[in-house]
Amino acid sequence: MLRQWWQRRRLLEQSWQQQRYIALDCETSGLDPAQDKLLALAWVELRPPLMDFSTTAYHVFATADTDLKQSPVVHGLVQRDFIAHSDPVTALQQLQAVLEGAVLVCHHVQLDWQFLRRAAERHQVKLQPLALIDTLQLEARRLRNQQHHLPRGSLTLARCRQRYNLPDYAAHHALSDAIACGELFLAQAYRFAGRANVAVREFVTK
């Protein structure tokens, strides 16, 4: 136990460019992890400056009609998308494997992480990423440091990407959002710590 802790700590001291990351996005039926369901999950692996599309995974989970609530408006998932669905246990075990020794990166990571943890607990899978990074928080931190006022809506994934001249993607598809988030992280990380030998720790969400 102690050894594992020590090893994780050591990895976090490494330069961020040596690290492996999993950029991930969840589609959910709502914003409450206690009540709402995880509908879809997608991730892609990053090894700066690369994003390897052969490592992408995309899972849609079986749900009852009622679980969809109003969210189809948001994520565009309708009942027929669930016909070919993944088994949640297999999907979560796959995620568990790739998260081993990797840092989880999401836009607004707390929300995704809570959904993931609940799902993992329910299916008795243990997700142990090295650390969590939130691209939304990184952006907020950067803008505040520059004394920017932050109007509502200025921290959406799309708006953040625009500030780095990243291309526009059709939002709210788990896979494009995961890729979009991964690219945003690369852009942010190189902007702040391109040359300097900065440790992953500096980016980690506290």
């Binding site: 400056p49 690369l50 994003m51 599309f53 190189y190 391109g194």
Partner: peptide, 17 residues
């Protein structure tokens, strides 16, 4: 093709790689 591609973030620090 998409499945086998790599994305590369190109900036002043990575351009030579």
């Amino acid at each position: 093709v998409s499945r086998q591609m790599l994305g590369f973030y190109l900036n002043q620090h990575t351009i030579d790689q």
